[in-house]
Nucleic acid binder design. Structure first.
Lengths: 233, 233
DNA sequence: GAGGAAAAATAAACTAGTTTAAGAAAATGA
DNA sequence: TCATTTTCTTAAACTAGTTTATTTTTCCTC
């Protein structure tokens, strides 16, 4: 299993385009042994490269360069990756587990900003990008394994791996569209339908987080969610 | 006035960084006459270049190339730039006036997704990026002048002007953060404070759009907004 | 400047979602 | 395994925001 390097997986995807087939096949052969060992050494990083090279083309050299900037970290259930008011220096890529970002409003009500499961990116983006203290906290819901990247290194990557600019552009396009669609739902749908949509869109998340947390994501109280659920049956 | 080309304006901004001063000064001199005529011919496009080169560096050649892809359009008050269900092929940059994107939910309630004033970009982003029919409509609130860019040309720009990738990344970063902050406000603040914040953040928009439209942006009814306003005094 | 249409305000009945409180079920931990 | 804490549910009183209807104001436009 382990010798299925990311390059081979990428190759399989590129096979859809016959014109590029020969080129990548040769490229792949040349790098074969190198990749073989590579993927055994850096196994833990493979998911990230797979994730990125699904969206933009990365050379082996660029992948190498990229990985040097990331570092591994694991967090126990309930442990905080980021606390409100702390400087927000890191961007997290989730390899395993589930994370949640949230904050408390003035009256102490908890609001969930987002969940992040495997292959999602999470941080307090406005504060990360502008090097300000975090407005929200990020906590592990389950024992989780992440890759972290700090702001300085992100900027170095932008300079040294041009295609990462494109990748990050696509990531932000996606995030913007997702957030806008969520806003549209919140403006136009009653809580019951928002809950149904959440279950449909994120079944894996829904099965692993508490109802209280789902309620605080949907912007309703746990009591009201409980009522919606009993009406549904 | 008109001979203040975008390059000269850019130069003024870069003067804050003394080390780059000499380089840009010489560059600017060499291009001076060319720019002079250029900015008289393409005067209408100047704002766009000024807007972009505030965020990334553009060479004269790149700016030239870029502008070829954009075309001008004007819309009368109440005219539609995009109608729901129509193919969403264009991205709009607002030169003058005010636009609004909105949709009707199942029960016929109008929801405002965003406003766009001078120097803002607007489209139905999820549908534009994925070449799908629009879910929302875009309408001119006042007589407006825009620059339009279609999806194919945007992709050509990404290929031929690398720094536009960076520009668009920053645009999307901003849009994502703005939308997330709006979501946080909607989850945690009562309508009265959301209205106050709207007035504070977008005073220029607030003065030009109807209360009904502001209400539909905040996710409340015009009647309730009217009540909030009378309580305020 | 008159007349018609749209926007805004007021008010009263109404409803979606909240609050408070208390009990049942489930997870945690020692 | 038992005690403790947390999550989930139920129910009743409550409130933020809606609906419907009427009046007033603003703003086109002829």
């Amino acid at each position: 299993m382990y010798c299925y390097s990311y390059k081979v997986i990428q190759l399989a995807e590129i096979l859809q385009h016959p014109i590029t087939w020969l080129f990548f096949y040769l490229d792949s052969l040349v790098n074969y042994f190198r990749i073989y060992f590579y993927s055994n050494c850096h196994l833990v990083l493979e998911d990230l490269i797979k994730h990125i090279s699904k969206r933009v083309h990365l050379s082996i050299e660029e992948a190498d360069l990229l990985l040097d900037f990331f570092s591994e970290a694991t967090f126990q259930k309930k442990e905080f990756l980021l606390q409100k008011d702390q400087q927000c220096t890191d961007l997290f890529f989730v390899r395993e587990g589930i994370l949640r970002s949230f904050f408390l409003n003035e009256s102490g009500k908890e609001c969930t900003v987002m969940f992040a499961a495997k292959d999602w990116w999470i941080t307090d983006m406005p504060c990360f990008l502008n090097r300000r203290p975090a407005m929200i906290s990020i906590q592990a819901i389950e024992n989780s394994s992440v890759l972290t990247l700090n702001k300085n290194d992100l900027e170095r990557i932008f300079d040294s791996v041009p295609s990462f600019n494109i990748f990050f552009r696509k990531l932000m396009e996606n995030a913007y569209c997702r957030e806008q669609l969520r806003m549209i739902e919140n403006l136009s749908l009653p809580a019951s339908e928002r809950y149904e949509n959440f279950l449909r869109k994120y079944p894996d998340v829904a099965s692993k987080v508490s109802l209280k947390q789902i309620a605080s994501y949907l912007g309703i109280t746990p009591e009201f969610l409980s009522m919606l659920r009993s009406n549904r049956k």
